[in-house]
């Protein structure tokens, strides 16, 4: 019999999945240089957070978690919009969207 960790899905599975997704998103933010990839990784992290919220909502039987996740999605959308606008503006000004090269806040 396959061990129950694989056949019996628990809340922990979902939480760990969210954690892994979060970690991958964070790795993407840290390791990639292109601003757009960074933004996408941020979206990944937000999704991981959403997953966590929904898992706990299911755990506690509280619908308010769903509402919170909904709000999170909306705010993520807004943030993506503004962030992409900034990336566009930076690309226009600098000619590149390389995060590592945008270092004028050095001093």
């Amino acid at each position: 019999m396959v061990s129950s960790i694989y056949s019996q899905i628990t809340y922990g599975h979902f939480l760990v999945l969210a954690g892994v997704l979060f970690g991958i998103g964070l790795a993407g933010v840290i390791l990639r240089r292109n601003a757009l990839i960074v933004m996408m990784s941020i979206e990944l992290m937000l999704n991981a957070a959403n997953m966590t919220i929904l898992t706990f909502a299911r755990m506690h039987g509280d619908m308010r978690g769903h509402a919170l996740a909904f709000i999170v999605i909306a705010v993520a959308a807004a943030e993506a919009a503004v962030g992409l606008a900034i990336v566009v503006a930076v690309y226009r000004a600098r000619g590149h969207a390389d995060v590592d090269r945008l270092s004028t806040l050095r001093h």
């Binding site: 899905i9 979902f14 959403n50 997953m51 929904l54 898992t55 909502a57 299911r58 769903h66 996740a69 909904f70 999605i73």
Partner: peptide, 9 residues
């Protein structure tokens, strides 16, 4: 999400 019974989401 669906598996978490969050269909709407």
């Amino acid at each position: 999400y669906a598996m978490l019974y969050a269909h709407f989401l």
